[in-house]
């Protein structure tokens, strides 16, 4: 799925990373616990979260993610946007709740690696 399709499906506002909107992503994950993202996520390109602090961007960067979607109308700080720009990560925000956002993406074909836990 192209990142621009994610933006459309979630009716999201783009915050940075316009140049990467045509890039393809193949899976996504959703969590407000960055500890769990670091422990369980593997090869997921998109992070859906309602957590706001700079460590969200650093975690995404460490995991080689290319897009972070903030749900529940949460808006990242200017510092987070600058950090994401420096890391080449697309940021967007949506009014949807996490469950709803995941449902839209999942039913449109963006899966989460078949629910495998990489422990």
């Amino acid at each position: 799925m192209k990142i621009c399709e994610i933006q459309k499906l979630l009716n999201a506002t783009l915050l940075c990373g316009e140049e990467a909107l045509e890039h393809d992503v193949f899976s996504a994950c959703c969590s407000d616990m960055m500890s769990d993202v670091l422990a369980y996520v593997k090869d997921q390109g998109v992070l859906i979260t309602g957590l706001i602090n700079p460590q969200v961007i650093r975690t995404a960067s460490m995991m080689d993610m290319v897009c972070v979607v903030f749900v529940r109308s949460k808006a990242p700080t200017e510092e987070m946007i600058e950090l994401a720009e420096a890391c080449g990560i697309v940021l967007m925000k949506s009014d949807m709740r996490a469950y709803e956002a995941c449902g839209h993406l999942y039913t449109s074909g963006l899966r989460g690696n078949a629910g495998k836990i990489h422990g």
Binding site: D32, M34, L38, A39, L51, N53, Q55
Partner: peptide, 27 residues
């Protein structure tokens, strides 16, 4: 041990302190 943490609630509210750090470093 996975899940063991002495982090306070304030740290959990920041998205960390799930007791996965050291096991993850080993992994």
């Amino acid at each position: 041990q996975e899940g063991y943490s002495t982090a306070c609630d304030n740290i959990r509210s920041l998205g960390f302190g799930a007791g996965m750090g050291l096991p993850n470093m080993k992994k």
